[in-house]
């Protein structure tokens, strides 16, 4: 699959962010969404650019570390899953995918797609 990605880039909490456009090619439909971002990041590093920061950890749908708004939906188009369990087979070749951090005052951006969720620990 070949995809066009519009990704929110913001160096830190105080900086002003903006969307950047990237392209990834030859992505297998069995690749997970976060692996697709890994591939993009390796490409960016090889091109001498800053990789996209995003939170993730267990990558098996349980820890809650990954986040992301994908095409306007939290965790993307699939249901009952976290972003790490989203696979590229849910998209079509040639799609444009918009990837944003959570847009909420309670979760300020730390960098790119990473947000500060310590507010959760205060209410739990």
């Amino acid at each position: 699959m070949n995809l066009k990605l519009k990704i929110w880039r913001q160096p830190n909490a105080k900086a002003k962010g903006k969307f950047e456009v990237y392209h990834v090619e030859n992505i297998s439909p069995d690749t997970s969404f976060l692996e697709m971002l890994d591939i993009l990041n390796i490409n960016l590093i090889n091109e001498g650019k800053e990789p996209v920061a995003f939170d993730h950890d267990c990558r098996e749908g349980i820890c809650g570390m990954c986040s992301l708004h994908i095409n306007g939906h939290a965790h993307g188009p699939d249901t009952e899953i976290t972003t790490c369990q989203l696979h590229m087979r849910k998209f079509k070749d040639g799609d444009t995918i918009v990837i944003e951090p959570w847009r909420s005052a309670a979760f300020p951006v730390i960098k790119d797609l990473v947000v500060d969720r310590t507010a959760f620990d205060k209410i739990l």
Binding site: D55, D57, C58, E60, I62, C63, G64, M65, D116, R117, T118, F120, D121, L124
Partner: peptide, 12 residues
């Protein structure tokens, strides 16, 4: 290292 203590990999 996580954003909250409750994300540690024991969770998995």
């Amino acid at each position: 290292i996580s954003d909250s203590p409750r994300r540690a990999h024991s969770i998995a």
